[in-house]
């Protein structure tokens, strides 16, 4: 066991699964890099180096660079998954779903149902999401609520390096299509990650801390901010439970309801825009299933209903912060 970055954890998961199962292949734009060019081979390993080093081990037969053609290669990954391979396709930024979404939500997601249970589509789409990279409106979104909406897809949001490795291995071994969201601002964050392969089951939330006053349910990178806020609140004797649902589909509603009932006060933290996101989804769940357990209205801390801005001054205002989470918890406690 050693400390490994989110990037290393993902790379290790891919390598171990490719070693374990020859049907696992990678494809995407520049996943190796330098295809057909005269310079260095494996030049990029993805734009942020996440898949670097895999092509030299497994060859271009298994680490396939694609042209910039998301519709075709995401669809090809779906088709290959339905015909015997276990592809891991990289959709560089989730914002690019606009040019290939049909292949995901109308094709891969629905094969099994439309074909009466006779299709198996073990497809993984890895994709970068999230703000904080000064990447502006078309490279910073958190579009996981859109995927969560689609029956047939599973959606994973690893909140640290340990989670990233285990959830990605689960995604690759899973026989359903999985959209695996990697927060681009977390690639250098480190955690203890076992060297051995391990799979974290989907639909099993991780309670990162247990408290008595407020339950904070946070998604993806927001889990870390929630823990940070909980640390600060603990100094003022406000103790928080922090729940990392790990996957938005399936969603561990049991743990959400149980931890909400324990404190009676809930803050949901979601970096996505506030309408029809995971925060509203969880809030609706609580209102419908746990209204009687709530001592106060559910509070949501989310990004605003605006595109992600470029200017650092604006983007910093855009992203939910530990301070905003902390303030929401304090308001809840003060108000009840």
């Amino acid at each position: 066991m050693a400390r490994k970055s989110y990037r290393q954890a993902i790379n290790e998961a891919l390598r171990q699964e490719m070693e374990r199962d020859s049907r696992v292949i990678l494809m995407g734009e520049d996943v190796a890099g330098g295809m057909g060019a005269e310079g260095e081979d494996d030049a990029w390993g993805g734009p942020l180096g996440v898949t670097k080093g895999l092509m030299p081990i497994f060859g271009r037969e298994r680490v396939l660079d694609t042209p910039i053609t998301e519709s075709a290669f995401i669809g090809a990954a779906a088709g290959a998954a339905a015909t015997g391979l276990r592809p891991v396709a990289e959709l560089m930024f989730v914002d690019f779903m606009g040019v290939c979404f049909d292949q995901i939500f109308n094709q891969a997601a629905k094969f099994r149902y439309m074909f009466g249970g006779k299709a198996v589509t073990p497809l993984v789409i890895r994709t970068m999401y999230g703000a904080g990279f000064r990447a502006a409106s078309q490279h910073s979104q958190c579009l996981y609520p859109l995927f969560t909406h689609i029956p047939g897809l599973k959606v994973a949001l690893p909140s640290n390096a340990y989670e990233a490795k285990g959830l990605l291995i689960q995604a690759i071994r899973d026989d359903d299509p999985v959209i695996f969201f990697e927060h681009k601002a977390m690639y250098d964050e480190e955690a203890e990650v076992p060297d051995e392969a391990y799979a974290i089951p989907f639909g099993e939330a991780n309670v990162t801390r247990e408290g008595e006053d407020v339950t904070i349910i946070a998604f993806g990178r927001m889990v870390n901010l929630a823990n940070e806020a909980a640390d600060r609140l603990a100094k003022d004797k406000i103790s928080c439970t922090v729940v990392d649902p790990r996957t938005t589909s399936p969603l561990d509603t049991e743990t959400i309801l149980e931890t909400a009932a324990e404190t009676g006060r809930v803050v949901v933290v979601d970096e996505a825009h506030p309408r029809c996101n995971m925060a509203t989804d969880v809030a609706a769940l609580l209102v419908q299933e746990a209204f009687g357990d709530l001592k106060a209205p559910v509070r949501m801390v989310t990004g605003p209903h605006a595109p992600v801005p470029f200017s650092p001054a604006l983007e910093d205002l855009y992203i939910p912060s530990a301070a905003r989470i902390e303030a929401a918890v304090r308001e809840l406690v003060a108000g009840s």
Partner: peptide, 15 residues
């Protein structure tokens, strides 16, 4: 909808 899927099926056959 079909052509990208067929690229995938062809890739499977080739691989």
């Amino acid at each position: 909808g079909g052509p990208p899927l067929i690229c995938g099926a062809a890739l499977s056959a080739k691989y």
